Amino acid sequence: MASQFDAQGRLRHLVTLKDVPRAQLVALLDRAESYLTPPGAKPASNDTLAGRTIANLFFEPSTRTRASFELAARRLGAEVLSLDVSTSSRAKGESLLDTIYTLQAMQIDIFVIRDAQSGVPAYICDHVAPHVAVLNAGESHLNHPTQGLLDVLTMRRHLGDLADKVVTIAGDIQHSRVARSAHHALMTLGVGELRLVAPPTLAPDASEFPGATLLDSIEDGVRGADVVMCLRIQRERMEQGHGPDAAEFHRQFGLTPERLALAQPHAIVMHPGPMNREVEIAGSVADAPQSVITEQVTNGVAVRMAVMQTVMETLHG
């Protein structure tokens, strides 16, 4: 794929967090934090992207991520075009590159891409014009970089330096782009310990998560943790026999109040959404004071504002 960075090492696309240096990661988090305002206050906004146009190409269904990118772009003063996949040219048979070239001819500045197929954002990076940026809004099971950024921003705001902290991610790790992007960011930031908890049928290959500890006991994973993040269990995988059914999963692996009590008293509870209440997480835990799930959503808009502003500065100064 085309490099995420320009000749000076500045970020011009964002496809993965895997190779983003610590200094740039921290700079993105710092910029995102500057866009956060207290609950009830007016959201941060400026005209940094006035006259620029953002195209959201979501070839996979999304509500939260798409809305978050739209709000982020508008709060920076940009115009936003969001394609409905059900009526897009790609659905009608036009090639992906023809769609990109058509939109590029309409003077699009940033393409925000979400696709169930691996490699699509990187492929588009290889073919856009030099003045155009590509942002990955979720790719197969591999990458979801802005989600990884908003997750570590949320952790940092509550816990400060993560060097001595224990982060536990539980659920369907094998198929999770959220877990992979969080792993990339946490390893770069030097997290104290990253624990990954999953049933054997939903566990990843250990080689995909270097530095992490793989566990098949939710109690062992949560005990002493500073962060517990649950991942959505895809019911279709249960129906296909790739794991216990919903009730059994909750019994064996669900985050209940009793299990959360094993974590540090100050531990925070996270979930990227959408949640299956009473499957991977008890409703009472999702709504408990320790839950920062809605904060993650707030932080997501700020992160996407920071990323858009950063790549536009790289391309246009």
Rank of each mutant, 00 (worst) to 15 (best):
N143W: 07
N143E: 05
T146W: 13
Q147C: 15
Q147A: 13
G148W: 06
G148E: 07
L150I: 03
V152A: 08
M155R: 02
R156Y: 14
R157T: 15
H158A: 15
L159K: 03
L159I: 05
L159P: 00
G160W: 01
D161K: 04
L162K: 00
D164E: 09
K165L: 10
K165S: 08
V167D: 10
I169W: 11
I169L: 13
G171P: 05
G171Y: 05
D172A: 15
D172I: 15
I173S: 13
Q174N: 12
Q174T: 08
H175Y: 14
R177E: 08
R177Y: 06
V178C: 00
V178L: 03
V178P: 03
A179V: 03
S181M: 09
A182Y: 07
H183Y: 07
A185C: 10
A185R: 08
A185M: 09
A185G: 09
L186W: 03
L186D: 01
M187I: 05
M187C: 04
T188M: 11
L189V: 00
L189W: 06
L189P: 01
G190Y: 10
G192T: 06
G192N: 04
E193Q: 15
E193M: 11
L194F: 12
L194P: 12
R195C: 01
L196S: 07
A198V: 09
T201S: 14
L202A: 10
